[in-house]
Amino acid sequence: MTTIDFRSDLKPAPSESSSALLRQLVAHLRENRTQLREEWLRRILDAELLQAMTRDEIFAEATSVYDSYVEALETRTLEALQAYAQKLSERIIPRGVETHEVVGIVLLLRDVLARSLFAKYQNDARLLNDVLDAYEPAANSIAITVAVGFVRERERVIREQQEAIRELSTPVLQVRERLLILPIIGLIDPHRARQLTEQLLHGIRSNRAKVVVIDITGVAAMDATVANHLVLTVESARLLGAMVIVTGLSPEIAQTLVNIGVDLGKMHTVGDLQGGIEEAERLLGYKVTPSADVVPA
């Protein structure tokens, strides 16, 4: 669980009078809970935020957020709200709620409440000033807390997904005795390139491979670092006694390899995966012939 370490209290510590004002404020927000909540909901719907959720769901969440908000103002701590914001994020991120929507609804609530304070204290400008002095820093901290909580949760989800993609995406497959293929799909960053190399080298040893076909049809482009790494992989495999055939180079990758001045004597490349496997079979002494017993459909 992520803990938010900055500003866990509503600082600076308020004076006596501003404490009293905040208490008064909280009482006001409690009294007008139903009406203010309705107003807030109407504003959310008008602004067409949270389109991914139904009206009832928005109402339920809005009620909880409202209560947590008032509670945070009252207790002057943000822990409960932080925890709530994180749970809320966990619920709504999978439904495609965007950052601007979350920030938007919190700011709307802030506006709605400020508006009600204007209405209540409109006859006393000095008191209104004091109330806003007490309210605004607290409201801003709350808005920041919720937004940061949401963004952190989002980043956590993204990190988890990247981790999952990394684990999924590097199969080393044996297609014939002593022949491995390594299909690479997607973006290769230096971290993934390293992992690929490691898996391939250990795969060569455990499968006793003599020829490896690395297919990079699914890689749109690679930068010079990764291209150099590919050359390293080919070299390392050779040191283990295996030969590497690289297939499916896109024009962009071919350009990158030429630009970094790769020694083509060391790189064995074939146009596509089929060609690569055929070449590998030739090297291994396999001969594939159509069976005379089977009548082609």
Partner: peptide
Amino acid sequence: PDVAYAMA
């Protein structure tokens, strides 16, 4: 394998 990679 690790030696091969380090050498390359």
